[in-house]
Each structure stands twice: as structure tokens, then as C-alpha cells.
Amino acid sequence: MNQKIKRISDLETKYINEVLNTGFRSSSGALMMSRLEDAFRKKFSMNYAISFVNGTSTMHASLEAMGISEGDEVIVPPLTMSATAFAVLQANATPIFADVDTETFVIKSEFISEKITSKTKAIITVALYGLCPDMDNINKIAKAKNIKVIEDNAECFLGKYKNKLVGTLGDCSSFSFQSSKHLTSGEGGIVLTNDIVLAENIRKVQSLGYAGVSAKKSKITKLDIQDPNYLRHTSMGWNYRMPELCCAVALAQVERIDELVDIRIKCSNLFTDVTKEFSEWFVPQLVEENFTSSYWTWATVLKRDDITWHDIRDLFIKNGGDGIYAAWQLTYLEPMFVNLDLLGREKFISNSNLANYKKGSCPNAEWLQPRLFQFKTNYWNFSDAEKQSEILYRTLKNFS
């Protein structure tokens, strides 16, 4: 196969020029933001989309909009980028870490149940590497306890769960347009929801608590702000709005979403195929029936003790490989949690919860993290992926 696509195409350039041609006049409004939000919500058949400056502010705003604050607990997985827990801390709430499944690598409903208390107000699931957890069981648990569910889908665009798009399953969902993601505008993010009250509240948090914004209206009018009697701010909010230039790029990426996701899936399938004979000890993330991964990365776990993570990585690079990413350190084992250096937010965490930030809290995740390999899937020329898969095969053959 000789498939090639462009990460950034002429369409992105066209939309950027449209913004530049406005001269950034305030009278031009947030045209690209509105177009992006409309295109994204329609792609997912959702009622509301609110764009953000990044994919962490999305979750912080969602928590704030839900009224989650000091004294509240939010359950999160430890095996993911720490921004998921950061968002909880930014809302002055307490992140509680629930363990993951050793085969799918994602948060598991039974471990969520173990961590629920009377203070639990939300669960943030993470669709890790493009694969979502068992959302039916998680939603069932949440509904029984009147707990909100936020989907962190920074790594999952067009993934599916029981033929439903990931991002349509919780109370709201968060996506990232950071540079490594399926769709990118350099930075940015977006929230989806069908709940109009939640959407209105999220927009208020996103836009400085402005009176004139709404679930689908992203900017106050020039006529309003020219009135000396206009009362602008009905609530506290942040300036989390996505810049028009970023919106322009993200809009083009949304319009190209199928090809941008498809090539990652094809690259991942290639890696799966060439490593089958080693699958007893070099085991890919399990994608069960009724699940579809969008493969932000192709992830595997090493199930041998006679060779190390670095043995494989070093030989892969020596053979001409691009390199291999390790999994993030577990969030609660990062120095900020170990030392409780949380910019003062440690005062909101009760002593009874500090044990949640110690080694042994999530044994499955602790076993997995040093054994995980994350291989690139963002090869815009498929022949490059074919070369890398051949190098990986030769590398693993050396250890078989």
C-alpha cells in the first residue's frame, strides 16, 4: 500500500487565510469558533459543542459547571496523562484513583465501585490509546449513586462502544486538539453534551461568565458592549475560549476526520499483524467485541522477565526504528503528589485520602506502567509504517 495523506492540507491554509483576512476585527465575531462547534457536534450527532483553549480546560470547566468543588471527590484512572487529575485539582476537588484492567489498560468498573464514597460527585473515564472502558457498567454505577460521568477522549476520535461513538456516552465528553492527537490545531479542545443546562454552564465557565453567551452562542455582541449600562458578568468564569486561528485549523481537521483517523487504524493493524508470533509475551492492548479503538497509539505490554523494556527499545532504535514511547508515570507517583506540591490545593485533601497517593494503591496499573510500549501510529505515508513494522519484527525475532 502506498497511501499518503497530509497532516496539514490546503484546507487548513484556506481557513486560516479567511481568519487573517478579517484582520481580527471584533465585529467579525467568532465565526470559525461557531463553524467548528457546529461541525463537531453534527459529526457526533450531539446537541452542543463548546470549544476550548486546550483539552484540560475542557474537563476543569465541566467540573465547575457541575458544581464540583472543595470537599468533593472525583474518580480517575492513574494510568494516563496527569492532566485528567489536574483538572480535578483545578476545581479544588480531590482526585481518587481507581485501578485499571491489565488486558485493556483502561479503568475498570469494579475498581470504581470500591472507591465510591458519599463525597464522590463524578467519574472521569479515559479512552486510553483510543479505547474506551465498559461504559454501560460505569454509567449504571454512576446513575445509581447520582454521580456525573465525564469522558476524557483526548486520545479517541471515532472510537466506538456497542456501535455508539465514544463521546456520546457520558454526561459530557472532552476531546483534545493538542499536536499529537488524531485532530490537531496545535492546541485546543472541545466538549460535547446533550444537556442544555450543563452546556449553558460550561459556556459561562469558558467565556468569563458573560451574560450574552449561551450553549450555542460563543460571543457577546458589539452592540451590547457599547452600552455603558450593560452588565457583562453573571458568574465567575475563565477565559478558556479557543483562538480563531486554532478554530480554523481544527475545523478543517474535523472535515478531514475520517482520513486522519483511518490511517492510524491501518498503521496499528499493520503492527498487530507483524507481531502475532510474539503475542504470548508481547501482548497488544485487548480490544474486545463491541469495542472499536481509534488507535491514537499502538500499545503493548511486555510479559517476560528475562528482558527489559530498554532492551527492546534500544535494539529497535539500533535497527532503524523511530523510537518507542513509554507510558506516563502513574499520576499519584509523580513528585507533585508524592510531595503534595499542589499549589495550595493540598489543603482541600483530607488526611484519609492521602493513602490513595501511595504505592500499592492501584497494583494493576503499577504492574503495567513499566512494561507498556507505545508505538507511533501517525505515519502520514503508509510505506513509512511498513518499514517500521518490519524493523519491529526483526527486533522481536531477536528475543524469541
Rank of each mutant, 00 (worst) to 15 (best):
S361F: 08
S34A: 05
K217Q: 11
S176Q: 07
I349S: 15
L208M: 15
S173F: 03
E334R: 15
I124F: 09
V106I: 15
Q178W: 11
Q369M: 07
F399A: 14
L208G: 05
L315W: 04
A61D: 10
D311Q: 03
D262L: 08
E37N: 13
K358D: 14
I96G: 14
S82E: 07
Y332R: 11
L128F: 01
S118D: 14
E244I: 12
F175S: 00
S118C: 15
G360P: 04
G344W: 14
W296G: 14
I265G: 09
C247Y: 10
N381K: 07
V287G: 03
D99N: 08
S179E: 02
D305H: 13
N54Q: 08
L330Q: 11
K303D: 15
D136P: 11
S27D: 13
I263E: 02
A127N: 04
Y161E: 00
D195R: 05
T58V: 12
A355W: 10
D224Y: 06
M59N: 01
D99F: 11
L192V: 09
R241C: 09
D314E: 12
T102M: 08
I138R: 02
N353D: 05
T308F: 10
V287F: 03
S352Y: 12
S173P: 08
T58M: 05
W328N: 14
N21G: 12
L343M: 13
K204T: 08
T184Q: 03
Y161Q: 00
I220F: 06
V191I: 13
F348L: 07
N146G: 07
D314H: 11
L245C: 07
